[in-house]
Amino acid sequence: MRHTLAVLVENRPGVLSHVAGLFARRGYNIESLVVGETEDKTVSRITLVVEGDERVIEQVSKQLNKQIEVIKVNDITNEQTVDRQMLLVKVTADQAARQEILQLMEIFRCRVVDIGRRSLIIEATGDEGKIEAVIQSLRPFGIKELVRTGKVSMVRGSK
């Protein structure tokens, strides 16, 4: 099963390699990892998506907790969360296809952020389902390049 862990860490050099290295040496699989500062500049948040059963996830959290720079580990898999990923995709778009793509993107509320002579760059944010749908809908036109971030999540409500 996939688990989402929200890990608060001290914002110090080397933190990311300590955390990422832990996963490598203990043989855990990271599906995605996003790191960035939080409302407190001295604290960063790492959002990790990890594959594993309960036993593995328990070990992952315990090992993370042992890291000196780790402040808190939260398994938010079963929480009500807002999840977002971001996608940039460069799609082939000659004059004929351009209108159709723009209409599609309208439906998904995506933005066109660059227009080339034969291609468009489209930006999308959303949960995994939406990002997948955007990619599927653009595929027939010819995807030239695609990048996406891992997932960031926030628990809903006042928690």
Binding site: P13, G14, S17, H18, G21, R25, Q67, I68
Partner: peptide, 16 residues
């Protein structure tokens, strides 16, 4: 050495 020893120390530091 900080990179090399990461998996075999309780913690390590490079003091810049």
């Amino acid at each position: 050495i900080v990179g090399i020893t990461m998996p075999i120390v309780k913690h390590n530091y490079l003091v810049k």
